[in-house]
Design a binder for these strands. Sequence first.
DNA 1: TCTCCTTATACTCAGCTCGAGTATAAGTAA
DNA 2: TTACTTATACTCGAGCTGAGTATAAGGAGA
Lengths: 316, 316
Amino acid sequence: MDDTRKSRKSHDVQVDLIAVLVSVIAGAPSVLTIRQGDMLPSGPFEFEHRSLQAGLRAWVEQQTGHPLGYIEQLYTFADRDRIDNEAGRAISISYLGLTRAEEPHAASAPHWVGWYDYFPWEDHRDGTPPLLEEVIQPLLDEWAESASDRQLRDERRRRMASVFGFDGERWNEELALQRYELLYEAGLVAEARRRRKAADCPRKEIPGVAMFADHRRILATAIARLRTKIKYRPMVFELMPPVFTLLQLQQTVEALSGRLAHKQNFRRLIEQQELIEETGEMASDTGGRPAKLFRFRPAVHIQRTLMGTRLPVMRS
Amino acid sequence: MDDTRKSRKSHDVQVDLIAVLVSVIAGAPSVLTIRQGDMLPSGPFEFEHRSLQAGLRAWVEQQTGHPLGYIEQLYTFADRDRIDNEAGRAISISYLGLTRAEEPHAASAPHWVGWYDYFPWEDHRDGTPPLLEEVIQPLLDEWAESASDRQLRDERRRRMASVFGFDGERWNEELALQRYELLYEAGLVAEARRRRKAADCPRKEIPGVAMFADHRRILATAIARLRTKIKYRPMVFELMPPVFTLLQLQQTVEALSGRLAHKQNFRRLIEQQELIEETGEMASDTGGRPAKLFRFRPAVHIQRTLMGTRLPVMRS
DNA sequence: TCTCCTTATACTCAGCTCGAGTATAAGTAA
DNA sequence: TTACTTATACTCGAGCTGAGTATAAGGAGA
C-alpha cells in the first residue's frame, strides 16, 4: 500500500445495496417495492455477505420473498437525498434485475408497482401524454423565466427542449434520468421540495408518486439504462416466459421503451437476428388469427453479453 | 428505516476510489499510474470528502499532481484480488477520466503508461498481433483440453472463439474485459497465478505487464467502456486539443479502438454529424497536402450526454 | 523545374438497413 | 355470412455504409 494510505486510519463508510427488480406484468413494466411502493428493497452490505450480489440477494429475499434472477450493477450513489446523515457517509450500490412476470399470489404477495405510476410522463404508447403540455411545460417555463439572468434562462430553455422534446425536438425515451433530474432541479417533484425551504419551491408539484430518499432517482436511472441497453443487447429475454408469440415480445419491448413499434418491421428485425426459433406450436387465444409460438435459442442465453440486438421504435 | 435495518449495527466498510485517467500521447492511449505503472491513482473515501468525485480528485492530484477533467463512474468492485483482507471488506469505486495529452515536463512528470503495454493483444492497428496466434491461442487450447469433461471443454472453446475471434469469428474490440477475464480464468496472467498454488498454474504466462491487486482488471473495464461508448457518444473531444485536423481525430479514435478506420468514410461521418467546424486555418506540417483545421462546436460540449455520434471502424 | 511521395479531399456505386405501407391469411363473434 | 381481430408476407424508396476511384496540393530530391 501507498504510504499515504497506510498511515491514516480512515473512517469506514456505511454501504447500502439497493435493487431495482423489473418485471412486465399485464403490459405494465413494474418494480418490486417494499412499504407499499415507497422504497426499493435494500439493506446494508455486511460482513457475512460473500459478495455484493450475494448481499443483495439476501436482502431482497428477506424483504420480499422474491428470488433474484439476472442482475447487473447499475450505479453507485453517494449522499444525495440522504436523510440521516449525522454519523457518517452513506453509499448506495444499486443493481438492476430482470425477472419473469409471475401471477401475484395472495397474502405475502410482494408489492409490484407499475413504473409509470412514478413517472407518468414517460409512457408514450398512446401518444404524448397531455400531462406534458398541460402541466409540465408551463411549470418548467415558469422555472426558466425565474432564472436570474438571460443566459441561464436560455440554457434552461435549451435543456427543457432537448430533454422533454419540446419546441419541435424529438422525444427520446432514453433520457428518463435527465428528465427526472431536470424536474428535481426545478423543484417540481416532492423529493426536491422536502429538502428546500417552502419559499424556494414553485407553487405546484407535478403528478407522479414520490419515494423514500433518492429511490425514485435510482429507478429513473434503471429505466434509462434498460431503455438504452434493450436496443443493442438481448435483455428482454429475461422478462419473457419460455414460450411466447411475437406480439407478446413486441408488447414487452413497447412497455419498457414507452413507445410503440411498427409490427411488421419488428418481426423482420427479430427474425433476421436468429435470436429465436419456432416451437412448432400455435397460440390460439390471440383474438385473431393464431400466432406461432417461439422460444429463445439456447445460444442466446450463453452469449448474452456478446451479441448485439437491434430493436425498432416508431418515430412519430 | 426498516426495522431490520435499524436494529442491527452493521459493520462499516472500507471504500476506495480508483481513477483510470486516459490520454492519447503520441498515438498511444495511455493511463496515468503511480509506482512506475504498477498502480492506478487511488485512495480511501474519507469523511472530509464532500462527494465521491471530490474525494477522487483530491487523491489523484495528491498522488500525481494531475488535475481531473471530465470523469464518469465506471464500476464498483468488491473483493476480487484484494490482498489485505483480514480486517473487513474493501470496495473500490472506479472512475474513468479523459484528459488532453500534455507534454510530460521533466522531474515530477506523472507516469503515463501506454495501455497496450498491459494488453499487447488488444492493439490491432497493424493487423492481428502475432502474439494471438502464436502464444495465446495455443495456451488457451491447452486450457480447454484440460477441462474435466467434454461439455466444459466445448464451452471453453466457444468462449475462446467468440471473445478472441478465433476459428473465423470476427474480432470485437469491445470485448477487452471478457478477454482479460478469460485469460485470468485460464491462469495465464500474473494476477491469477499469484493467487493459486503453483501446481494449479499452466506452465507459461503471456506477455503484458501486470499490476497491483485488481487494477489491471479495472483498466480492462475502462478500455471496454471507452471503446463501446466512443461509438455513440462524442467522448473523443475530451482527448483532443482545441484545434486539430481530421487525421489527428481519426488517429485518436484508432488508438483507442485498436483498429484502423477508413479515411474517406471517417471524414464523411464526422462532417455529417455537425460536431465540428472549420477554424479557417490550415495545418501545413502534415507531410503532404496541408489539412484544414477544425474545432468542436460549442454546443457539443454542453449536449455531451444527449447527442449521438457514430464512428466507423474497418471490418477486415 | 520536374518527378515522386505523402496526405487531403471529393465523388461514385452497389448492397444493405429501415421506415412505412399494401396485401393476404386465418382465426372469433354477432 | 359479415365484420373485426391479429398474423404474416412482400414491396418500395430513402438513406446509410463499406469500399473504392479520382484529383488536389504540399514537400523532398534529382
